[in-house]
């Protein structure tokens, strides 16, 4: 289902939560909406998911206007929307399976049908053996899987993910994003992913809109936005992008990355070396070029340790000379085996 937002406005008193947002969200795609806290994401998703009415403007699902629906129509329309949340929002009074059953129960579906549906949904999200588990016995990732199963129980055409991975660790985040991606393809869902994490956009979305102070400051295909960011907000998000891909390396998380590719060489500087212009001297003294992929300074037990991930290009003997030169300067050089 295609979603269109036209000139949406929502104010809370004097606070302009959303001021004039228009967006076209294509069907069967994953559309990211990124913004800092207070940018208006939550308000926007509350209007899209029909929890709140806009002060002005309209929301369209395909060719149907949905922001002014009357009570019964509104309830019927909401039953065709799936939504998952940062805090999972599961019913603690129900088991995992009974949570998934809830949206079916409220539609008056028969018990046998519900049981069969719950079983298949729990299997789809990989929790076929936890149907009778109380919610408190599940891990964060498992809770979000149950929430996804519950959101998809009524076979919606739209899935809203409101900071769905923000409470999860990086590994679990990746697993949940992979699950959403595969379900999106399988069930032809239009997914709207609200987040403040650029890595979520990078790892899952096809399109992205960047929100700031209640407005869309930039939007487009994710590849385009990443290669050619225009607004300062987007650039800021990209600068703080951390590596989710290499979480096994905790230090890598603190690096600033300019490129999603890894570099062949990792240079580590210690103490006072962080003040010396070693790389520019290297480029001056030897016929090699240094292309920096990522870099950063960490404080480890009171000592500054600088890390640069880079490529050194040039003929092999010059590269070796460069490594030797760096090592003579007291820099630790790690060379990756593959490339």
């Amino acid at each position: 289902m295609r979603i269109a937002l036209k000139n949406l406005v929502k104010n809370y008193g004097s606070l302009h939560a959303v001021s004039d947002i228009s967006l076209e969200i294509p069907q069967n795609r994953i559309f990211g909406i990124i913004g800092k806290s207070g940018a208006g994401k939550s308000t926007l998703v509350r209007m899209m998911s029909l929890l709140e009415k806009p002060d002005a403007g309209s929301v369209w699902f395909d060719d149907r206007r949905v922001d002014q629906l009357e009570k019964n129509e509104l309830i019927a329309q909401r039953r065709k929307i799936g939504m998952i949340f940062q805090n999972f929002n599961l019913f603690s009074s129900r088991t995992a399976g009974m949570n998934v059953a809830y949206p079916l129960e409220i539609c008056g579906i028969s018990k046998q049908e519900i049981d069969a549906k719950v079983k298949s949904l729990m299997e789809i999200v990989g929790l076929g053996d936890r149907i009778d588990a109380p919610i408190s016995t599940l891990s964060g990732g498992q809770k979000q899987r149950v929430a996804i199963a519950r959101a998809l129980a009524n076979e919606p055409e739209i899935l809203f993910c409101d900071e769905a991975t923000s409470a999860l660790d990086p590994q679990t985040t990746r697993a949940i994003l992979d699950l959403i991606k595969s379900l999106q393809k399988k069930m032809n869902l239009t997914v709207v992913m609200i987040t403040h994490q650029m890595e979520v956009v990078r790892d899952s979305c096809n399109f992205v809109a960047v929100l700031d102070e209640g407005r869309v400051v930039e939007q487009g295909a994710v590849t385009e936005i990443f290669s050619n960011p225009r607004s300062s907000v987007t650039k800021d998000f990209l600068a703080h992008l951390m590596s989710v891909a290499s979480t096994e390396d905790a230090e890598a998380e603190k690096l600033v990355r300019w490129s999603s590719k890894g570099g062949r060489y990792t240079l580590r500087f210690r103490g006072g070396m962080t003040d010396t212009p070693v790389l520019s001297r290297l480029g001056r003294d030897l016929p090699v070029e240094v292309n920096i992929r990522a870099g950063g300074v960490q404080h480890v037990e009171g000592e500054e340790i600088g890390t640069i991930v880079c490529d050194i290009s040039g003929v092999e003997e010059n590269r070796k000379a460069a490594v030797k030169y760096l090592q003579e300067q007291g820099i630790v050089v790690e060379e990756a085996d593959n490339e």
Binding site: S49, L51, N87, L90, F91, S92, P103, I106
Partner: peptide
């Protein structure tokens, strides 16, 4: 009862009566 849970129930298309009897009361039991 956690507001988020009520919000979730509402997004799923619960009527107010369903929220009271199937969510609020069981959750607050």
């Amino acid at each position: 009862v956690d507001h988020g849970v009520i919000q979730a129930a509402r997004t799923m298309g619960s009527t107010n009566a369903q929220i009271v009897f199937k969510v609020l009361i069981p959750e607050a039991l």
